[in-house]
Design a protein around this nucleic acid. Sequence first.
DNA 1: CGGGACCTTGAAACACCTCAAATATGGTGG
DNA 2: CCACCATATTTGAGGTGTTTCAAGGTCCCG
Lengths: 229, 229
Amino acid sequence: VSQFTHSKSAPGQLTIFSGLSEQEVQQLDALSTTRHLEAGAYLLHQHTPARQVFMLEEGVLMMERSSATGKRQIMAFIYPGNFIGFTHNEYYEFSVQSLTRTRFTEIPSGAFIDLQEKIPQLKLNVRQIGGNVLAHALDQVFALGQKKAHERVCFLLRQLLERSPDPGGEGKIELVMTRQDIGDYLGLTIETVSRAFARLKKEKIIDIHSAHTVRILDMEQLSEMALAE
Amino acid sequence: VSQFTHSKSAPGQLTIFSGLSEQEVQQLDALSTTRHLEAGAYLLHQHTPARQVFMLEEGVLMMERSSATGKRQIMAFIYPGNFIGFTHNEYYEFSVQSLTRTRFTEIPSGAFIDLQEKIPQLKLNVRQIGGNVLAHALDQVFALGQKKAHERVCFLLRQLLERSPDPGGEGKIELVMTRQDIGDYLGLTIETVSRAFARLKKEKIIDIHSAHTVRILDMEQLSEMALAE
DNA sequence: CGGGACCTTGAAACACCTCAAATATGGTGG
DNA sequence: CCACCATATTTGAGGTGTTTCAAGGTCCCG
């Protein structure tokens, strides 16, 4: 049985395994190593040689870029089932840090590229994941360029609803990241993020249980604000 | 002789032809159709089926996304040698409009994908171009999330210096796009863009000949501001 | 030379940021 | 299990940068 069997990716989500036969999954298994990382540790660093690709099995990661002046931009939050390190350049374009304790598999880039030649479906999946990653980046550009603070927060909440497992209750979201992380993702300060949450609560669009647990009350309005169109 | 011979791409820039033999270039030629577009016309529309890929030969294009409320985000300005439409999804993720009269070649996606199997170097080029496109998007996310107005304008000027042909004079830039286009690229209003240019002129970092022709006076300071780090 | 589109500049409004302080949260050891 | 502590979050007040609204100027093309 594949080591990937117990992966907690959201249902219906595209992964590198989508549509692969049991035998093909085993070929991938043969190349893979399972590893763990503690919260706060780095999976990889920007500008280091891109020699591995990864698939997250459990926990949450974030992809980030920092400048010499200490400005930090979070590029994505990464949930189980997501694929990491598909950069087609020689070096990674970003760093990846653990938000929680994580479990993931590691595959050497070269072997992974070769395997794509043997498994056409795998190549298709990688191609489509690449497209999704670009689409995600374009969404973020649109959000940062055109949306107001509270709309950006809605944008994030919608993404988290799609990608994080919804534990039982409908519309409940666990925010494993800090306000600082959210601010660095949305191009805002922690204070503005906090006020945006307060505003959404006042408008009865969300309910804030604790700072790290919110529930969507009005999905329609949330989506409308998230799209801002 | 290849129809691509007279392509005016910037020297040293990666194109899909980089490192291809004459014979391989001819295989690409055989699939290609040359077309023209007038200024203001659309090359392709968001959400339409992605059936072709394109390479720009002459002129300038811009890649954009619009929302129903009329908000528009420019994702990139496209110069000769650039490759368009590499989306790996079924539909285009953006629209592409001409800023000037343009000349470009069109290749059916399916045939282009097949040809990559026959020409390993072509596949490498496409992979790397995909990586560059993602890197460009991440740069833009960082700029929109972390930089002030005048820093974003420097960010754009640096990009244009790299990508647009520098006609004779050193550091001279032709801004073929309007202030509105620039604003929609950088997430600013036209007034803020205008004031940012005025500020850079006052600080003697650039000189503004006409609204659409600027010259870099202090390259070092420009780069510093563009990076904002 | 005239006209329309584009660009610049000014003043006021607004959103977001900065600084500061109070409050809440989560983990730890007693 | 509770009290405590460090850390994270919220809230308030004031400042800054960007937007909005409005007017005037410039450029380009017929």
